[in-house]
């Protein structure tokens, strides 16, 4: 979710097999630099595999280029890496959020499982509760939210949406990314 000179990204913590909850401590948002974040929904094994893969790729990028990766560059890396698996895809729908290191401009985008990028100016949703999230974000989001308001908006949107989805919830992680500052908050959420 985009705010004024800041972005926020959040995920729930549930890991389940169909209706059976296995774990309530399975974060789906990963950090790849000072202000580059990746959220992954979908098949749990691919969430881990893909997050590990990008940790490797981003670390190699940093060593080779002696600089941190920019969110837009990272988004294109995600896209090309997923499309590489066009005919045997990873079953994930990633979301990238971050601030451009040069201009400080917020950047968000989403992908399908084969890497088609969906650029957005406002918000990106993904996962089993995406329809509920669309509804909540459409009604709660407004332009130029400050970091605190953005946190409140994204948290309320996420919690309300996952409460209407049996397959999501069980706590949440919320990251608010500002210039030179990232705030990570744990929302306990409903545990039922």
């Amino acid at each position: 979710m985009v705010g004024k000179d800041c972005v926020a990204i959040a995920c729930d913590l549930r890991l389940g097999l169909q209706a059976l909850t296995v774990s309530n401590n399975f974060p789906k948002v990963f950090q790849y630099g000072d202000n580059v974040f990746l959220g992954l929904t979908g098949l749990a094994t691919d969430v881990s595999t893909v997050s590990d893969l990008f940790r490797y790729k981003v670390n190699m990028y940093r060593l080779r280029e002696e600089r941190a990766i920019a969110p837009s560059t990272f988004a294109n890396l995600v896209s090309s890496s997923l499309y590489e698996r066009r005919f045997g895809p990873y079953f994930v729908s990633p979301v990238v959020a971050g601030l451009d290191p040069k201009t400080g401009a917020p950047f968000i985008c989403g992908f399908d499982s084969i890497g088609c990028i969906d650029f957005a100016k406002d918000f990106i949703v993904s996962g089993t509760a995406s329809e509920q999230l669309f509804g909540m974000c459409e009604s709660l989001w407004e332009p130029n939210l400050g970091p605190e308001d953005l946190f409140e908006t994204i948290s309320q949107a996420l919690l309300s949406a996952v409460d209407r989805d049996a397959l999501s919830g069980w706590g949440a992680h919320v990251y608010v990314i500002e210039k030179n500052k990232v705030t990570k908050r744990l929302l306990k959420g409903r545990q039922d």
Partner: peptide
């Protein structure tokens, strides 16, 4: 850890 290689600390 299941056969799909989904790992979770529990």
């Amino acid at each position: 850890l299941d056969y799909l290689a989904a790992l979770a600390p529990v």
